[in-house]
Simulated assay, not measured.
Amino acid sequence: MTRFGYTLMTEQSGPKDLVRHAVAAERVGFDFEVSSDHYFPWLSAQGHAPHAWTVLGAVAHATERVDLMTYVTCPTIRYHPAVVAQKAATLQILADGRFTLGLGAGENLNEHVVGEGWPAVDVRQDMLVEAIEIIRALHTGDLTTWEGDHFRVDSARIWDLPDEPVQIGVAVGGEKAVNRFAPLSDHLVATEPDAGLISTWNAVDGAPSIPGTGRAVGQIPICWDPDEQAAITRAHEQFRWFAGGWAVNADLPTTAGFAGATKFVREEDVAAQIPCGPDLDAIVESVKPFWEAGFTDIALVQVGGDSVDRFLAEAAEPLLEKLRSAAP
């Protein structure tokens, strides 16, 4: 059964609104909720970037049923992996076992702020491997000392461990990353409906099978609005960064950089990539490639923080009904 989630976009809403949206999304029937973990929004028009882990702690207490996930946290530069291990264990306790730790190699936009530079992608992946190994070691509850190529841990221990172990999903974007991270992960995370990622994952020794014990968690932006043109305008204003693709987006350091890189992206370019307007059937068609590719979990992003309340009140329930009727 395909599960459908709601995305808590920390780039487009403040912390109290995000908690309120989380409660409303649970009430209308979403199966899970994921949260971005950013220090910057992509574009200044989005206007927000509260601390995701603080928000998720509040969401864990304010909700009862939905699964929660970071989508995704970089545990290598802005955060030390030993601190991420502690945060994840605490959040799992607060969430009564509903939390999954989503990890990735990060974006310059968020990691440059601590002044440690921005390594090449191969180095970032090396760091992520080491970070996952540290987090796994600390989640055993054992006293841990670690001396690696990128991190040191000195006699650390997580004192408050959850009854339900924290599972880890890792964002992957190609065959090399899948081969490297599948044996270290519980779940696959990706933003493109690429069936090849899942078939490659399932061929890797030691990888949890998808579907099976593993899940493939995807994400897609939508811009629902009763007025199609208003939706297109809003998506262009706040989400045109999406047109750049991961290869560009991972390396840009500031909102000014994203504004410059997307200066010539037109409204029609954005509308061609993001379903905009009131047509729920069109949204279903845009989501369909994910379940056809084998994704088990698909999180929706409603573009525009000011539009979320109306989306959840008017469109979310009928959209979920249509999605569940169409999906396997």
Rank of each mutant, 00 (worst) to 15 (best):
A203H: 05
V129H: 03
T140K: 01
E107K: 11
A171L: 04
H187V: 00
K176G: 10
G115Q: 03
A203C: 00
V166W: 06
F151N: 01
I135N: 09
N202H: 05
P119H: 08
V178K: 06
L197G: 11
I135R: 11
R152S: 13
A171I: 00
V204T: 10
S185Q: 01
I222D: 09
F181K: 08
L103H: 12
P165R: 01
L161T: 15
E107Q: 12
A171N: 02
S209R: 13
T145L: 12
A216N: 00
G141P: 00
A190Q: 07
A156N: 02
A216E: 05
A216I: 00
P119Q: 01
E192C: 15
I198A: 04
F181V: 03
P211E: 15
R180P: 02
V166A: 07
S155F: 14
S185I: 01
I232D: 14
H112I: 11
N108H: 10
P165L: 00
A207Q: 07
I198K: 01
L138F: 13
C223L: 02
P221M: 09
E111A: 02
G196L: 10
P119A: 10
L109E: 01
S155Y: 15
V170Q: 12
E164W: 15
G115H: 03
G106N: 00
H139E: 13
D205H: 05
I134M: 02
D205A: 07
E147W: 00
W146Q: 09
R234S: 03
G214F: 06
V166K: 09
P183E: 01
E228A: 13
V178A: 10
D126A: 13
V114C: 02
E164G: 13
R152K: 14
G196Y: 12
G104L: 02
A177Y: 02
T144W: 08
R234D: 06
Q229D: 15
V178G: 10
Q219T: 08
V172N: 03
I168K: 12
T191H: 11
E111L: 06
A182I: 05
E164F: 14
E164R: 15
I158W: 05
A190N: 13
Q125G: 08
V178T: 13
V204A: 01
V189F: 10
L138A: 10
I210W: 06
P211R: 07
E130H: 04
N202C: 09
D126V: 07
S155D: 14
L109G: 00
H112G: 01
V166F: 05
E107L: 12
R136E: 12
I220Y: 05
T200I: 08
V178I: 12
T140C: 04
A177D: 02
I132F: 11
H150F: 06
N110Q: 04
E147R: 03
A190K: 03
N110F: 06
E147N: 04
A120I: 13
G173Q: 14
E164A: 15
G212M: 06
A195W: 02
E175Q: 03
A230Y: 02
V129M: 11
L103G: 01
A171R: 03
A216Y: 03
Q219K: 11
A182Y: 05
A195C: 09
E147D: 03
W146S: 07
G218M: 13
V166S: 09
P193V: 01
E164L: 15
L103S: 04
V204E: 12
